[in-house]
């Protein structure tokens, strides 16, 4: 049992168990905190795959930003005086059947396929320099467009969410 194996199963259990609770618990706040655990687990997978920069971005953007935004959404859309913040379910049985079938087919296909893996697997390298070089050369246009999209989206979100002034 080497460390990589132990870490992989550790992150796998954290991710899958907390993701299961995200979609099954009735309490919205519990779901949000379980989502935080899931995001931490996924960041762990990025580290295991040698993508340390993506892992840090995942922690900063998802855990620090998107999750806080979701909790804001929960707090602002439930009356604060309500002591229990619950969410009901719709179509549980057909949803479970369809998603179970889908998951079976998907995972069966994934595990049966023979992937063409690059022959000598290189060791994971720290990637900040490589990512920066690619962003400034090959992906400059996408990078700039994404910056504009993010700015427009945030301005739009603020303008949609603000109180009407009439």
């Amino acid at each position: 049992m080497d460390l990589y194996l132990i870490l992989f199963y550790f992150f796998a259990i954290i991710t899958l168990v907390s993701a299961f609770f995200v979609v099954t618990t009735r309490n919205v706040i519990y779901a949000a905190f379980n989502l935080m655990l899931t995001l931490f687990g996924v960041a762990g997978f990025y580290v295991l795959l040698g993508a340390d920069f993506i892992a840090i971005v995942q922690l900063i953007v998802y855990v620090g930003g998107i999750l806080i935004l979701l909790i804001f959404g929960v707090m602002l859309t439930n009356k604060i005086t309500d002591t229990d913040i619950k969410s009901g379910f719709l179509n549980r049985v057909p949803g479970l059947l369809i998603v179970g079938t889908f998951a079976g087919i998907l995972i069966g296909t994934l595990l049966k396929s023979t992937w063409r893996i690059a022959a000598p697997l290189p060791p994971p390298v720290a990637g900040l320099v490589g990512i920066g070089n690619l962003l400034m050369t090959e992906y400059t246009l996408i990078f700039e467009i994404l910056g504009a999209v993010l700015l427009i989206a945030l301005i739009g979100a603020a303008s949609i969410a603000r109180k009407q002034s009439n």
Partner: peptide, 12 residues
């Protein structure tokens, strides 16, 4: 597995 759980959450 994560994808299937996500779909389940969106649907139900």
């Amino acid at each position: 597995m994560l994808f299937s759980l996500g779909i389940y959450g969106v649907v139900t």
